[in-house]
Simulated scan of single mutants.
Amino acid sequence: MKNKLSSERKSEHCLCEALYELKSFQDLLKDSQTKFYGHLLAKIIGTDTIPFFLITKTGDPLSLIDTDESFETNYFRIESIDREKCCTTISLLRPLDIEGNLSNSLCDVVRLEKTSTCKVVDLSCVCAIQPLDTELLTRKIIIEPKW
């Protein structure tokens, strides 16, 4: 039993460190500025966010609800990390399909929009992190007519 408890704490610590690293990369995008080119890195990438989803210990994506705007999402942006308590504050990203409708199906989501809704997540219920392509935040959807 002691080994199982120890391995769970080690796993939580690894997740906490992985999210801390993700936050560091995201901060680099947002805060790096050069004398002559300003925020060139964020301009090249096109965003200051690295989207991701979290996998729970049951193997399902973590899903959170924005009660103000009435949508559910599996997609997040890291806002802060508490390495001592091994919890994180994340903001919810609104998942949209090609027609601009809400969709949580990984196959249907073509764009993510930032929201101001934040939630605190205890990482003891999480077993994996999956970063996503930043293009999901910058993609412009153009639908051309058939004729």
Rank of each mutant, 00 (worst) to 15 (best):
M1G: 13
K2Y: 03
K2P: 10
K2L: 09
N3C: 06
E8P: 01
E12Q: 08
C14A: 05
L15S: 02
E17F: 04
E17I: 05
L19V: 01
L19C: 05
K23I: 02
S24D: 14
Q26D: 03
L28F: 15
F36V: 00
H39F: 06
K43G: 04
I45Q: 03
G46S: 05
G46Q: 11
T47A: 00
T47W: 05
D48Y: 05
D48Q: 11
T49M: 02
I50T: 03
P51C: 02
I55R: 01
T56F: 09
G59E: 10
D60S: 14
D60E: 15
P61D: 08
T67V: 13
F71R: 02
N74Q: 15
N74T: 09
Y75H: 08
Y75M: 10
F76R: 08
F76K: 03
R77M: 15
R77L: 08
I78G: 14
E79P: 05
S80W: 15
S80V: 09
D82C: 09
D82K: 06
D82M: 05
R83C: 15
C86W: 08
I90V: 14
S91L: 10
L92P: 14
L96A: 12
D97T: 01
D97F: 11
I98W: 08
I98L: 11
S103C: 06
N104L: 02
N104S: 05
S105D: 13
L106T: 03
L106I: 04
C107P: 02
D108Q: 08
D108S: 04
V110D: 04
T115S: 05
T115K: 00
S116P: 01
T117P: 01
T117C: 10
V121F: 00
V121C: 10
C125M: 06
C125I: 04
V126Q: 07
V126L: 03
A128V: 00
Q130S: 10
D133T: 04
L136V: 05
L136S: 06
T138G: 05
T138P: 01
I143G: 11
E144A: 10
